[in-house]
Design a binder for these strands. Structure first.
Lengths: 258, 258
DNA sequence: AAGTGGTCTAGACCACTCG
DNA sequence: GAGTGGTCTAGACCACTTG
């Protein structure tokens, strides 16, 4: 049995968030088992000394995460869904490799300003002739080449990036810290192909090896695109791990909440 | 200007959902433009004649969808994020092909009961020796072969599926309608490879063409795995379209809501 | 009928942003 | 200081499930 700590009502941390975290701890420590029913929302609220709505808010957020699920009239239950952190997200290469337990590295091929190609301009919603900052790198994991990436960013977005950014460090960190640019969503297209001679040499694989071909556009919260990436990744050392969900019901036709 | 319909307080449709749908329509019809600020929550609530919490609930749900975003002290704004329906979700092949505008079809290679391999049993959380229903199909889009899929389901979950299911129809629909099984989340691993001779013949591609190799495990709400799929898809006619998000902050370390 | 989650109210106070 | 979103309350009523 665990002694319940009281909630801190003077904290800047919202009550519902404290409750959410406490439940999460209890679930992750197996104190609450998979399939088990949570106390009724009213009981939980009474125990914690908070309002019903506040307790519901905490539960709702965990339902959205897939940790819990509620059935009207029955109760709220612990889901057996794994909540791993290694599903594909908007991550910098640096973050992704660390999450996979590898040591990231890069070799810069080129870094400069150029006029965007039609493909790049379209993806970034720029006008014809506008300039972009282009950064081409070979990405390494534990000193082995993993892929080739070519990032393009609107020049107007970060006009002095060329001076302030050391291209061997994390681009995403500089964008976030210096320019306040947080990419929170990205659209990615993955295709398969065969390595070209140039790519094969850079990746140290044999000619015509199967590779992943990525195009990725990243957006900030307002929906404005801020980065367009074309990448080629080794097929023998890279895989895509995805969590797919059934959503979007809100959008079309006559669906209603359950 | 559009005449605002009143909310229907006698409807079984929740008020917040009516509000959400109305906002969504106004956004999709460009009546509310990208970047524009929504009326203040209080104003919106007053206009609609609902409580503040109710209006907030509608706005919150649209923020979660990425349609809106709120900044404390500033306002709530229309995001330019596209809300397309063709991002990768938990979809049956049938649904996916229709969403892509193709006519789906299948050719059944085999359909029967067998003892699960170690790989299948592990994915489905079954005990050694347990039996599964296995369905192998060639998937077509507009009569052209797209991929080969091998689905395995726990026999205990749908013991009479072999009798009740016509393997040329939609597996997902039968599972949902007859057994109440709704797969709402799936974990998928995608790799690249070269087509084997057998697969190449079935897919009508040349030997050693690059292909996608998928393994996918689908789960119901409780977190119980109910389907394991191994699939090989043509690299020249298939691509993965993904929307990645930056989430999971709730899980680790000291993060807090913004 | 009792117990559950889902929706809703009419307020309150706080934190943040901007002029 | 005025306006905004974020949190919270103490109730109410409803819909659904189970015995």
């Amino acid at each position: 049995m665990k002694k319940l700590q009281h909630l801190d009502r003077n904290s800047v941390v919202p009550l519902y968030y404290q409750i959410q975290q406490r439940l999460l701890e209890q679930i992750q420590s197996r104190e609450l088992a998979v399939g088990q029913a949570l106390p009724a929302t009213q009981e939980l609220a009474a125990t914690l000394g908070v309002s019903l709505m506040t307790a519901r808010q905490a539960i709702k957020s965990l339902c959205d995460l897939g940790v819990l699920y509620s059935k009207q009239g029955k109760g709220t239950f612990i889901s057996g869904m794994k909540l791993e952190k290694d599903f594909r997200q908007v991550l910098s290469f640096t973050e992704e490799m660390k999450a996979r337990g590898s040591r990231p590295g890069s070799r810069v091929l080129s870094f400069g300003i150029r006029t965007g190609s039609r493909e790049v301009l379209e993806a970034l919603h720029l006008r014809p002739g506008e300039q972009v900052i282009e950064l081409r790198r070979v990405r390494h994991a534990n000193t082995l080449p993993m892929g080739i990436e070519c990032s393009s960013l609107p020049l107007q977005l970060c006009p002095d990036l060329l001076d302030t950014f050391d291209p061997r460090t994390s681009l995403y960190r500089v964008l976030a810290e210096r320019y306040g640019i947080d990419m929170i969503v990205a659209d990615e297209v993955a295709e398969v192909g065969l390595a070209t001679r140039v790519d094969a040499r850079l990746l140290r694989i044999s000619d015509k090896s199967p590779v992943f071909l990525f195009t990725r556009t990243s957006y900030v919260q307002s929906g404005r695109p801020v980065e367009y990436v074309r990448a080629t990744y080794r097929g023998d050392r890279y895989k895509i791990v995805n969590r797919l969900t059934r959503l979007n019901r809100a959008l079309l036709n006559s669906s209603r909440p359950m």
